[in-house]
Every structure is written in structure tokens, then in C-alpha cells.
Design a protein around this nucleic acid. Structure first.
Lengths: 363, 363
DNA sequence: TTGAAAGCGCTAACAG
DNA sequence: CTGTTAGCGCTTTCAA
């Protein structure tokens, strides 16, 4: 790749405006404390030369980057085809942009990439990290922790080593699952099955727990045969649904761990000639639009505001909630950034967003 | 946001190893020209201190960043919910990673963000840019051009100002469209309609041209009523399909500009009780999986290898194909990066990837 | 081979 | 208010 064209430096601007570098720097960084005529001369020089500050030089001295890394662990190949990440990224991007921060996307395709990511984070490119899609045995959180970068996690982290409390944003997976199953029960269904998500992720575990909470207090009680392990994908949902029908042909309701797998289940049901919701009622999770709305039949599901989760993660990071015990003193900056945050509350270690049941035709 | 914890510097490593900074630098950057015992001492010191080079400092002197920006213009809100970008990003990410480059994602939510992006690019954060989703009237390419950063475009750029030839990667939109329409004609369909994409994008225009190419040589000739303008979205496809049925209830085939809009069309067809393909044959474009495969009926479509396009874009950039006339001399680096590129061919200004017709049930 | 020294472009005291 | 002066942490001549 060719070197970028050499651009004018502060020095050049200073020379052109007939002032010192310091003065130019002041003008460029907000201009306070510089008399107007001078400032104007500087601005003109900046304009004429097309000067743009060199960020590397700036970061070197300020130790700030106005950039945040988003780390998406991608053990399978499932990341970007899942609209979930897309939405979260949108939220993050919006919030970051509003605070003049850049989003640096770090995708990890496998174990090999973990060290690369850790190196990047430790390399002082970014002021913080937003980390997603963690699996229980993931070595990434440790590496990231060691990189010494403030971090907010997307989804409750599931590790149990001594990495200490992590700041994270999640939705009320357990509560949402309860709502879904209760809805099914209220419909008079008695043989309510659950197609789980990938059980190495806490979201799947929590939803399963929620399902069990309700089933335990149900007349029939919990039947293990009604729980089929799956993996959040449409294909997984199909497979699990087939397995379920083999085990319990009399099933009359299905709570799928997410909309994608619910869609898979719907397909199998249709192909078997089972009517939804008459024969089998189906509830999903996520309210992934437009999928959930346009499925056949439209999917009743538990909505979580994914984009908002993303925004919140970014805000927590910028507000300094992710500060590790050692280093303090950032709330001021977040406030000065013109944001709406900056309240020096005690940093929460986990923020749980509510869920709502969206009733459509499938249950 | 809190400052990152202070990390050890080259200086510290040098002190610990009892050598000069220069020696440490040499070891860290490949170690050639340093006698083994010394090098070993340095490596141990690096290890013990957990030293990671500060990239800002490094870039300041090398003027290289090993980072590439991906710019996605998002005039509408349609970017991340479209699997298209996801796939392209995957390809880009893979290629970049293989060459130890970082991907920096720049999302623009609207006009305001354009200057921000231009500033970022000019700010010397990245060695090059990959730019997408351009619309005909987009001011972004000009801004990016002025930022003086080597750039590869995704999709044939459509502007006509004097910005000079651009390097881009695209699929054979026109040829693919021809194939699709010929297939429909070969099926004996005579009233073949086209639901266009957003016509401010060259891909939509090219596909429309391909459709017209074939229709022109068809017995009936081209009937303008059979062309309905749409926008690449499922909702747009629905609307266009309704409009089409209003105009020409006798339509017996539809070529949709992409799979997403084809899905919309399919839905309207089903709702009107028209059978696909018996009454109306439908062909899409993209072969967006798993959507195209799992639609009802499965969609016959024109496949383009989107992920490969992404990979190719990244490779072209890294190989220095995007060098602007002024600055030369990067092929060596790309080769030394351990890549498979680096052949000093004349830089192509456009690379067109082939398309294939994938026959499924819808036509 | 190794080290000393000179910056890369910028900000941030500190004087004036 | 403005300029002068140190560096930020690193690479890279240039000598030794």
C-alpha cells in the first residue's frame, strides 16, 4: 500500500499564519485563549493549507484516542449473518459518533486472532473496548483484562475465574423467558417445550432457567424431554424441532431461545402439516425485525431493544463506568464532551434492560 | 473514559535488558542484525514486562498504520440489516487479518458525518480506505479523494465529475441480469417484469440495463409498464409487486433486482393466490443465504460471491493497486507482508467478478 | 553488531 | 494572551 500523501503540519500552518505552533494548536483545539484577529489568521492558514491534525502525534502526547474497539468473538462463522450484532453495532455506532469517538471493529475468526486482538488493545489504539459474544470457556476476557483497557461487555459474562466484576449490559433473559412461557401456559398449553440457545452462552442458560422457573410451578411439572438443546440458528432450530417431535409428538407449544431458531421450528412444523398456533403455539425471543413480523405466521416473541443495548454499552464506557479500580477520574471528560451523561454515580457492574412480549399470530 | 493504565516503554525494556533502545526496537521488529544472546535477553525482558509497542509512537515515525478504514455510507437506515454488507465485511476482515491489518469501520449516518469521516481519513489513522454503498449524488467520494488516501470502491462508482478513474470491485450486474431474464424467457415466459433496485446506485442501473438488453431482442419487445422502480428492500419489493399486478395482471415472470425484494414479491404473490412458479416465475439476485434457499418456494437467483468481493477489495488495496498516480512504491511491502499478492501488474481500475444462475424452485 | 542522537507532529507546562 | 521549551515512545540514520 502506498504511503499517504504528506500533509501540512502544525509547523507549516504556524509559519503561514506568522504565529507559534502553540497558538495554532490552541486554535485548532477549541480556540479559547487566543485573541480573535490572530485566531482568524490561523483559521485561514488552516483552511488554505488543508491542515488536518495528525492523530498519531496527538495521541502520543494526550494518551487519548477518541476511539473505541468493538470486539466480536466469532468462534463459529455466525456473527455477521446474525442481525443481532448488526443492531447492536448500529446502537454503538450512533452513541460513539455522537461523542466524536471512532468505532474500531475487531473481528476474531478463531483462537489465533485472540492474541492479535489483545496486542491491538494493549497497543494503545483505543480508549476502551466493547466486547461481545462471549462463550463460557472463552480466553478472550482474560486477555482483554490483561491488556488493561476499560471494557464493557455485551451480555452477562459467564466466566468464574478471578477476573473480578465486569461491567456489562444485558436484557432480562430470565424474566423474558418466564413471560413467554407464562403466556403459553395462559393459552392453555400444557406440553410446553423449549428449544435452547447455545448453552455455552449465558443468555441461553438464563432463558432456559426462566423456562424452568415457570414449568416448575406448572401442574404437569417440568419434563426433561421437552427441552431440546439447540444453538440460536435457523438450522439448529429445525433440527431441534424435529428431535422434539420425535420425542414428544404431542407437544402443543414451543418457546424457542430466539427468533432465528423459532423460524426453523416454524418451517418444520409447516412441513409436518402442523398448524401454528392451533396445533402448536410458538414464541420466539428478540423480536428480530423484519423477520419476526414477516414470518408465516407472524411470530409472537419477546422483544429486547438491541440497538438500545448497544447505545448503552457505549455510553457506559464513555462515562467511565468501566474504570478499573486503579485508575479513576474520567467523569469530567464525559461531561465535557457535551454528552448527556457524566453523572458520577457509582458505576453499575451490570445493567439489565427490560423485555416485552409482542403478541402476533404464532401464539 | 479513564486513561489506560500506563504500560512499559521501550526504554523500560532496554533498561531491564541492559541494552539500548535501538537494540530493543530491532528485536521487536524482527530481530535481524542482533546477536542471539542479546536478542534473547531482550525477548525475556519484553516478556517479563509485558511490553507492547505503542502504535501511535510507531506510526508517528513510520507513517504507516497497518489499518484500513471501511466506509459505509448509510443515507437510509438500511445498512446493517442487509446481509450484503455483512458478507462483504467478512471477506474484508479475513483478508485484512491475514495481512496483519486492522479493520476500522466508519459508518456514516448522514451528511453531517461525511466531514467527520473525511477528517478521520485525512488524520492519518489508516493506510487506505474501502468504500461502499455509493449513491450517484454522493459527495463522499470527492471528500475521500481529497483526503488523499488510497481507496478501493465496492461497486462501480457512478459519479461523473473529474475525480478520475477509481479502483473498484463489482460483480457482473448487467451480465447476471441478462442471464436471469434469458432463463425466464427460455422457460417460455413472455411477460417478464423487472422490479428495479434503487436507481441511484449503479448496480441497480446495470441490472436494469441487462434486463433491457434481453427484452429488446425479445418478440414482444420491451414494455415500460413491466418495469417497476423499487429499492432493494423487502418492503419495496412488496410495493413494487402490487403496483406491477395493478398495471399488468397478466405478468408471468418477475426478475427482482435482488433477493430481498424478490422475497417481498413472493409474499404478495402468495397473498394474491398466485402460484410460483406456475403462474408467475420469480428470479432474484445475490443468492443471499440462507434467505434464498429457505424462502417459499426456494428462490432461483443470480449468485454473486459477495464475500470474495470483499476479500478482493482488501487485497487490491494492500497490493497497492489503489495508489494514486503521484505516490508509488508499495508493491514491495505487500509482497513482504507474506501475502500472495505483490505482482506489479498494471493496476486495474475495475475488477468484475462473474455471476452464476442458481436454479431452485421459483423459476 | 551495537549505541547515541535526532527527530516524527503534537500538546502542555512555563515564562514572558 | 503568546511564544519557548520539553518531551510523548518510537524508528532510524550515523558513528563507533
Amino acid at each position: 500500500m502506498p504511503d499517504a500523501v504528506s500533509r501540512p503540519t502544525l509547523e507549516a500552518v504556524a509559519a503561514r499564519a506568522g504565529v507559534s505552533r502553540a497558538t495554532v494548536s490552541r486554535v485548532v483545539n477549541g480556540g479559547s485563549g487566543v485573541r480573535e484577529p490572530l485566531a482568524e489568521r490561523v483559521r485561514r492558514a488552516v483552511e488554505e493549507l488543508g491542515y488536518v491534525p495528525n492523530q498519531a502525534a496527538r495521541s502520543l502526547v494526550t494518551k487519548r484516542h477518541d476511539a473505541v474497539a468493538v470486539v466480536i468473538a466469532e468462534p463459529e462463522t455466525r456473527v455477521f449473518t446474525d442481525p443481532f450484532f448488526a443492531l447492536q453495532l448500529r446502537g454503538i455506532s450512533k452513541e460513539l459518533t455522537a461523542h466524536d469517538n471512532q468505532l474500531v471493529l475487531l473481528l476474531t475468526e478463531g483462537r489465533d486472532d485472540h492474541t492479535r486482538v489483545a496486542r491491538y488493545l494493549a497497543g494503545g489504539h483505543v480508549d476502551g473496548a466493547l466486547v461481545f459474544s462471549l462463550h463460557l470457556d472463552d480466553p478472550l476476557p482474560r486477555l482483554i483484562h490483561d491488556a488493561g483497557v476499560p471494557t464493557v461487555f455485551g451480555g452477562r459474562p459467564g466466566w468464574r475465574d478471578g477476573t473480578g466484576p465486569a461491567v456489562y449490559v444485558d436484557c432480562d433473559n430470565r424474566g423474558g423467558a418466564r413471560t413467554a412461557v407464562r403466556h403459553l401456559a395462559a393459552l392453555g398449553r400444557t406440553r410446553i417445550a423449549h428449544l435452547t440457545g447455545a448453552l455455552d452462552q449465558t443468555s441461553a442458560v438464563d432463558r432456559l432457567d426462566g423456562y424452568r422457573d415457570v414449568m416448575a410451578e406448572t401442574p404437569g411439572g417440568a419434563d426433561p424431554a421437552l427441552v431440546v438443546e439447540s444453538d440460536f440458528t435457523p438450522a439448529g432450530g429445525e433440527g431441534a424441532m424435529r428431535e422434539l417431535l420425535a420425542r414428544r409428538p404431542d407437544v402443543d407449544a414451543v418457546f424457542a431461545a430466539n427468533d432465528l431458531s423459532a423460524l426453523g421450528a416454524l418451517r418444520v412444523l409447516r412441513e409436518r402439516g402442523l398448524r401454528v398456533p392451533q396445533d402448536v403455539a410458538v414464541v420466539g425471543f428478540d423480536d428480530m425485525l423484519p423477520l419476526a413480523e414477516q414470518s408465516d405466521p407472524p411470530l409472537t416473541t419477546v422483544r429486547q431493544d438491541i440497538e438500545r443495548m448497544g447505545r448503552l454499552m457505549a455510553r457506559l464506557l464513555l462515562d467511565g463506568a468501566a474504570t478499573r479500580p486503579a485508575a479513576r477520574g474520567a467523569a469530567a471528560r464525559a461531561g465535557a464532551d457535551g454528552g448527556d451523561g457524566g453523572r458520577p454515580d457509582a458505576p453499575p457492574s451490570g445493567v439489565i434492560l427490560p423485555t416485552t412480549l409482542i403478541r402476533r399470530a404464532s401464539a
